[in-house]
Nucleic acid binder design. Structure first.
Lengths: 343, 343
DNA sequence: TTGTACGCGTTATCAA
DNA sequence: TTGATAACGCGTACAA
């Protein structure tokens, strides 16, 4: 018994009585191969159990057949935010059927982000990357242009971008939340926002401001780093202030849950004394008490579309701008009319 | 200006006035290169900005310089469990400094697990894989043996395994929780367990049983799929039963949070009427009200050690059995003595 | 230290 | 149109 060596294209060619090149043509469905010859080649390949070597293919065509995702948040923040696991499942929905691998990198404060992208690029590890949490004047846009890597951004950057973008209009979701609160009768509302440097967080803040103004509500905004701890801090600050809000719109579910705990700890009842809304409608929000009213976004669908769009970009299609369906509001127990003496 | 072509090893050899082979030797710190020649070669490489091509290296040495992680839980369950993001950050702590890439795959019900591993193997995408959530008579062990891929398992499998294992003794953590409750005076306790098919979940159950017996407590165990929804269901069942427990030990934090909500919804106060403990001491548990008493495990450290161990296995070292530090118990507000009339 | 074969597909060139 | 041949991508390993 010969040593366990996998068959090569040469073995297949020999078995089918043709040349290496023709095997390649046959397998890639390219013209110039007679039907019966093609059949003979495919049969030989199947018989031998031959699969083209990925590394050989990578070397000759210069593609990695993989895409990259660099997560730039600190571990604490990703751990508290179920968006990423769900989004990644969505990416895989597409990648797994197209034979792409997903290369995941984590750029914590210690591992600089730019280095991570550069490493991915110089090694040609990936054929393209997905950019999440787009920031104001995001340095990754010019960096990836320089590196010559195709990309897809989640949301449209505020700088000129040659990349495809897949966006959901967070503003619509925030507006739904504010309108819901206004309809319930709230007059003093607050927003616990994400980092103002992140475009989607900023957009949520702006939409909050606009919606509150339109509804004639008094409003306040507190910025956070998206972590549950910071959400708790922000909530405490809001509740301590004179003229504290009767409703708080949070920029993610984790912070909303933390905020709810802070309120309850002070004997402030949710929703009787304070209404709370979350964002992303994650699993955990459904299982706290009271259940969280939250803006529903389709993280998994977003992943799927982002992956698909990136693959098209890699294939050379011009950068597309794709808009996802607008978010909706899942109304649950954490919102109610304000206390009677509120105003 | 010539087309943007990256320099090859031949370019470096020419620039340094040596042969290709010697460049390779110099770069890999191998003997047989005169010091000054080596310096000249390195200088030339730096000057040209040359980096060895990963795909060429992969082809010639037959390594992918990447490791794989296949997550087999359903997206709902991963989204609710912060263990994975944190664990992945730990993997990256090691991989990022050793030039390995992390290939992440998600094997949902639709994408069969075995196929995923097979695909990884036939494409030689990875040099080794990390196996989490080891199950009873886990089919992945023989599968990976058959595929010839090195692996590291999280925990020691119950079948003969040729792979390295990195384990934390969950039993210790559960015992700490039960003893804590017994000391507080509880006499009727319950455990909301993970899937009995998962070895670590089963171990937690067994330890719970043993600890409860040893302390002379009446006990009950309910199995779940680890999801928050199932945790809620299990809690409802426990609270509905006659002779319901005064304390519940959960197998993860997400379920504990969900269980707490179910109790509160029924007007059962935590911890006055019901004590609750979680597992993994995740961020969210610190920010619910009351804060969750939870077993602290070091997911990130686990990732680091697992990655390191896998790399050693890939390098050919014999399979190691590594034990991590024992978990501890973080006591917070969700546990207290049972109500007076409890017994 | 050097030269060269080798790993393995892909693709351009050329002959039938 | 069908097929063969050979060059190519790039680093590694071994004989010289």
């Amino acid at each position: 018994m010969p040593p366990q060596t996998r068959p090569t294209i040469a073995d297949v060619a020999r078995a089918a009585g043709v040349s290496k090149g023709l095997v390649s043509f046959a397998l890639n469905d390219r013209p110039g191969v007679a039907p019966d010859t093609r059949a003979r080649i495919l049969a030989a390949a199947a018989e031998l159990g031959w699969t083209p070597s990925l590394s050989a293919r990578s070397l000759s065509v210069g593609r990695a057949f993989a895409c990259g995702l660099v997560i730039g948040r600190s571990p604490d923040v990703i751990a508290a935010d179920p968006f990423f696991p769900t989004f990644i499942a969505g990416l895989e929905d597409e990648f797994s059927v197209t034979g792409q691998a997903l290369v995941l990198a984590v750029a914590t404060p210690g591992r600089k982000e730019a280095e991570t992208y550069r490493a991915l690029a110089t090694d040609r590890r990936v054929d393209g990357v997905i950019l999440t949490d787009i920031r104001v004047d995001d340095p990754r846009i010019p960096l990836l242009q320089e590196l010559g890597i195709p990309a897809v951004t989640l949301g449209v950057p505020d700088v000129a971008s040659p990349f495809a973008a897949v966006s959901a209009d967070d503003g619509v979701g925030i507006r739904l939340a504010v309108d819901h609160l206004a309809t319930l009768g709230h007059r003093r509302v607050a927003h616990v926002a994400g980092p103002d440097a992140m475009l989607h967080a900023r957009r949520r803040s702006e939409s909050f401001q606009a919606a509150a103004d339109a509804a004639g509500l008094r409003s306040r905004i507190v910025e956070t780093d998206f972590s549950a701890a910071d959400g708790a801090r922000a909530t405490a600050a809001l509740l301590d202030a004179a003229d504290s809000p009767t409703a708080i719109v949070y920029s993610n579910d984790g912070m909303a849950v933390a905020g709810m705990a802070v309120a309850q700890q002070r004997g402030i009842r949710v929703p009787e004394d304070l209404s709370i809304t979350g964002f992303d409608d994650t699993e955990i929000g459904r299982w706290v008490h009271p259940a969280l009213t939250s803006v529903t976004t389709d993280a998994r669908g977003w992943g799927l579309v982002a992956a698909r769009t990136l693959l098209r970009a890699i294939a050379g299609e011009p950068p597309a701008r794709i808009a996802l369906a607008d978010p909706t509001l899942a109304v649950r127990g954490s919102t109610a009319p304000p206390p009677l003496a509120a105003d």
